[in-house]
Write a protein that binds this DNA or RNA. Structure first.
Length: 259
DNA sequence: ATGACGTATAATATACGA
């Protein structure tokens, strides 16, 4: 199986690139984030022409997540039990069973700054996600924009991030709490350079200088993680005219593995 | 060259992103 995660930063604005990428990469399952459309406006018909079923969860202007699958898509759940909101729950998580694996596409709250109420919300959201995942069992993949760089090696210059969100000990603790549930961080290889960054700010030529962050993560249960044969950041998708500021992470499991 | 911010909206400025 090939599965992937990609923060597309608006599925409407990215639709031509998304369709081109799907046709070329052919993932069996794709976790999308920041679709920025309501479920009714998701381009389901367009991706259906490429053989994909869609489950979308959106609220219009902000957030929005979706799952695309060509290996089945069942038991769709939007959000999760006990999900915190700001104050109301936002479209940040969607789950479905595809090819025997329970996939969850997540877009974790940004947090803005460690002093901001959104930072408290971010940590509460992680805690809620952890509690919900603790209630489930079986092969699972939680993939998406975690908005946390797991280590200092996952940002281009730790000095720049002193006092900033995405690198604080409580945020990294939230990731560790998920791993303690039995999830493995499937670290991809970079296509180029020494570190597998997945996000580069649009501004000031950050991509071209490889000043990025690894914040798009794939967390897999042991059965799935042990079947992984390759994982890569598709930085080609960050190139050219009109890219998202995030690159997809593409994971291949052993063809002999059945879940 | 990958090439110097982008997306969305009750819009011509503002919120948000990380």
């Amino acid at each position: 199986m090939r599965f992937a995660t990609w923060n597309v930063n608006s599925v409407k604005a990215r639709l031509p690139r998304l369709l081109e990428w799907l046709a070329a990469t052919k993932p069996d399952v794709l976790c999308l984030q920041e679709t920025k459309v309501g479920a009714e406006a998701f381009p389901s018909a367009e991706v259906a022409e490429l053989g994909y079923e869609t489950a979308a969860y959106g609220q219009g202007r902000w957030n929005g997540v979706a799952l695309l699958s060509r290996v089945g898509l069942s038991d769709v759940r939007r959000g999760f039990d006990g999900e915190p909101g700001y104050p109301d729950p936002e479209a940040r998580a969607i789950s479905a069973t595809c090819g025997g694996i329970r996939f969850t596409s997540i877009y974790v709250p940004n947090g803005r700054t460690p002093e901001d109420p959104h930072y408290v919300y971010k940590l509460a959201w992680f805690a809620g996600l952890r509690a919900a995942l603790a209630q489930s069992s079986g092969p699972a993949v939680v993939a998406g924009d975690f908005n946390v760089a797991p280590t200092d090696d996952d940002v281009w210059d730790p000095g720049v991030f002193v006092g900033a969100t995405h690198v604080t000990p409580p945020e990294r603790r939230a990731l560790a709490d998920l791993r303690e549930l039995g999830f493995t961080d499937v670290v991809p290889r970079p296509m180029k350079g020494d570190r597998p960054f997945t996000y580069w700010d649009y501004r000031a030529g950050m991509f071209h200088q490889n000043k990025g962050m690894r914040i798009d993560l794939v967390y897999a249960t042991a059965d799935v993680a042990s079947a992984v044969r390759d994982a890569v950041v598709d930085r080609d998708a960050r190139k050219g005219k009109g890219p998202s500021d995030h690159a997809p992470v593409v994971v291949d499991t052993d063809p002999g593995s059945v879940f």
